[in-house]
């Protein structure tokens, strides 16, 4: 009887880890796909998968990637109404994410940046949101490479007279690259995006 119980216990652990593995496997697969996806078709499919995953597993990761997917969708769409609808979905999802997480704050900044790309007339709301989110993210984790990447992006595209310009941007991209190189996390599902883009800017 003792062996039977042992067996049961082992089986339970096995099936539990199996489910965990499934979750991780699906997530990793789709996170990778999201990294390279650029067309609306594949992005729509990916946000749909993250929605399904979040339905089953109420973890912040799938929600984060679903939100990231909608931000990328807002860029991929050509039509302004569709862009707006996608960025609005991202805004709704952001409300459900923990505000004390530096990656979520960086995501909020990315959202603000993409909102401005659609409608710059609301800069009085979204520029402070962008700046404050990045500042808070750096307070929580000064080693988050993505926060410097986004700061760099903002500087890079700002006129030189406003303390921006390519040189200022590159400085921040370099800082970001240093952070990318020393970046370490135990979280397998942690965001990885940004490095390629920074490399692209640095090689220009």
């Amino acid at each position: 009887m003792k062996t039977t119980l042992m067996l049961f216990a082992m089986l339970l652990i096995f099936s539990f880890t199996k489910a965990q593995d499934d979750y991780k496997k699906v997530m990793l697969e789709n996170i990778q796909a999201l990294d390279t996806a650029a067309d609306t078709q594949s992005l729509n499919k990916l946000v749909s998968v993250f929605t399904a995953v979040y339905d089953v597993k109420k973890d912040w990761h799938p929600l984060y990637y679903e939100c990231l997917g909608y931000i990328k969708l807002s860029r991929a769409y050509q039509n302004t109404e569709q862009k707006k609808a996608a960025i609005q979905k991202a805004a709704d999802l952001l409300d459900g994410l923990p505000v004390t997480n530096d990656e979520v704050l960086v995501l909020r900044a990315l959202y603000a940046l993409n909102y401005l790309a659609i409608d710059r007339s609301e800069w009085q709301t979204y520029l402070p949101m962008l700046n404050n989110s990045l500042k808070k993210a750096q307070d929580i984790n000064p080693d988050n490479p993505r926060s410097y990447y986004l700061q760099g992006l903002l500087k890079y595209n700002m006129p030189a007279s406003m303390r921006g310009g390519h040189e200022e941007g590159i400085k921040l991209f370099q800082q970001s690259m240093e952070k990318f190189e020393s970046y370490q996390t135990t979280d397998d599902l942690a965001p990885r995006w940004g490095k390629k883009e920074v490399e692209k800017y640095l090689s220009k």
Binding site: Y23, N44, A52
Partner: peptide, 18 residues
């Protein structure tokens, strides 16, 4: 186009084409 279709309680999902 772009509608999300998912099977509840699974990780299976997709979206519609044009």
């Amino acid at each position: 186009n772009g509608a999300s279709v998912l099977i509840a309680s699974t990780f299976k999902a997709t979206s519609t084409d044009s």
